[in-house]
Design a protein around this nucleic acid. Structure first.
Lengths: 223, 223
DNA sequence: AAATACTGACTGAGTGACCAGTTAATTTCT
DNA sequence: AGAAATTAACTGGTCACTCAGTCAGTATTT
C-alpha cells in the first residue's frame, strides 16, 4: 500500500512543498474523522475537503476502514518515533534518571504533532483519545498494533527508575498516566467552563506543568 | 417529556418487575449506543433489541438525539444523586475529612450503576467516557448540563479538604481525576493485554485500591 | 368513546463502494 | 532520439443499500 515514493522530491521537500493528493486525503481524513468520528465521517466530505474526486480515495485506500488505519498509522509512527527517541535519550544517562522527564516524553511528541500540523487544531490527538477509550474491535486492534509496543517501553522505564513498582503497578501507572493525558488532548473546553476561564486546555505547556507533577506523585504512591 | 409516570407501580417495583417498553427502549439504547457510538448506532437495532417497532421509539422520543439525551439523563441523574449523597455524608463530619473518601465518592456510584444493571456490562460507563472526551457540540452540551453541576461540588470539596489548592488547581485536579477514572470505566481490556493478564480492568474494586491513592497523591502534588 | 400505546409499511436523503473511461507519467522498443 | 505500449492517477456518474423519520391505521387502556 501507499504511494510510489516521493515523486515531487528534489527541489521542494520541506514545509510548504505542494503535497501529493495522497497526503492531502490523509490530512483531510484526519480533520473529518476527528470532528465526526469514524461512523459520522463520510467519504464525500473527506474527498471534498481534500479537493479530489471521491473515487480517488477508493483508488488509493480501497475502503473507509483502510483509510482510517492508514491515517492512524502515518501519524502514530511519527509520534512514537519521537517518544522512543526522547525516552532512549533519558535512559542513556549514567545515573538513574528522574521520573519527570520520562512522563514528559510520553506526551510532548503527541502535543507537537498536533501543533506543527497547521490549522487542524490537534485533530489527531482527538482521534487518539476516542480510539484509546473505545471498546470496539477495530479501535482496540489499532491501539494494540500502533501503541502497545511503545507502551511497554514506558512501563519498563517506570520500573527502572522507580524500583518499588511491581510490574502490575507499573502497568496501572501507565494506564492512569495516559488517562490524565487524555484530559489535555481531548480539548473539550471543559476546564475553562468549570473555572470561569482560569484554566485553558488549549495551552499545552501550562497543562504539562500541572500534569507531570500530578502523574509522578501518583505513580510514586503506587510504590 | 417522558412516560406518564409509573403505570406498572404497585405490586412489582423491584428487581424483576416487567419493565415498561419505554424503559426497555432506554435500556436497549444504552447498550447499542455504547457498542456503536452515536452515529454508529441505528434506530432499527435499538428497536429490535428492545423488542418493539421502530416507530414506537419515534413515538416516545421523536428523534435519535432526544433518545440519546433521555438515556443519558436517566442514568446520570441516578449516578449523580448517589455521588452527591456520598459527598454530603463525608462533608457533614465535624473534623476536616480526608481526600480519599471524596475521590472514592466520585467513582463508586458510576461503577455500581454499571454492575447493578444486569447484562449490559458497564455500557453506560462507556458512553460516559466517549461523551466526556468528545469535542463535538452535542456531547459537550450534555456534559455541561448533566455533569458540570456535580463537578463544581467536588471541586469545592477538594479545596475544602486541601486548603493549599488554588481554584485553578482544584479544577485541574478534578479533570485529571476524571481522566484517571476513564481508564477504569472504558473497559478496553488493555491493562490485561499490557500485563499478560496481571491487571484486570473488569475488577472495579481492585482498580479503586490503585486509583484512589494515585489521584490523592497527585492532587496533593498540586498544593 | 376518547385517549394513549403501538405497528408495519413506507419515503427521501444519504451512504460506501464500484466502474468505465480519460489523462498523465513512465517504460520499452526501435 | 522519438514513437508506441504500459502503467498509474484520477474523474463523474451510478449502484444497491441503509438511514432516520413519517403516517395511516390498529390494538389497548381508561
Amino acid at each position: 500500500m501507499g504511494q510510489k515514493s516521493a515523486k515531487t522530491a528534489g527541489v521542494e521537500s520541506l514545509s510548504s512543498a505542494k503535497e501529493s493528493r495522497f497526503d492531502a486525503i490523509l490530512d483531510s481524513a484526519e480533520t473529518v474523522f476527528a470532528r465526526s468520528g469514524y461512523e459520522g465521517a463520510t467519504m464525500r466530505e473527506i474527498a471534498e475537503r481534500a479537493g479530489v474526486a471521491q473515487g480517488l480515495i477508493h483508488y488509493h485506500f480501497k475502503t473507509k476502514e483502510v483509510l482510517f488505519e492508514a491515517m492512524v498509522s502515518r501519524r502514530s509512527q511519527q509520534i512514537n518515533e519521537g517518544r522512543a527517541a526522547l525516552l532512549d535519550g533519558i535512559l542513556k544517562q549514567d545515573q538513574t534518571p528522574d521520573l519527570e522527564p520520562i512522563v514528559e516524553a510520553l506526551f510532548r511528541p503527541t502535543i507537537e504533532a498536533g501543533i506543527s500540523q497547521a490549522s487542524n487544531g490537534g485533530a489527531f490527538a482527538q482521534i487518539l483519545v476516542s480510539t484509546a477509550n473505545s471498546a470496539s474491535e477495530r479501535e482496540q486492534l489499532l491501539t494494540e498494533k500502533y501503541y502497545d509496543p511503545i507502551a511497554q517501553k514506558f512501563i519498563s522505564a517506570f520500573m527502572q527508575v522507580e524500583p518499588g513498582l511491581t510490574r502490575a503497578n507499573a502497568v496501572w501507572a501507565y494506564m492512569f498516566a495516559i488517562g490524565v493525558g487524555m484530559t489535555m488532548m481531548a480539548k473539550t473546553g471543559r476546564p475553562a467552563r468549570l473555572s470561569d476561564g482560569l484554566c485553558d486546555d488549549g495551552d499545552a505547556d501550562e497543562m504539562l506543568t500541572k500534569i507531570v507533577p500530578f502523574i509522578c506523585s501518583g505513580i510514586r504512591a503506587l510504590t
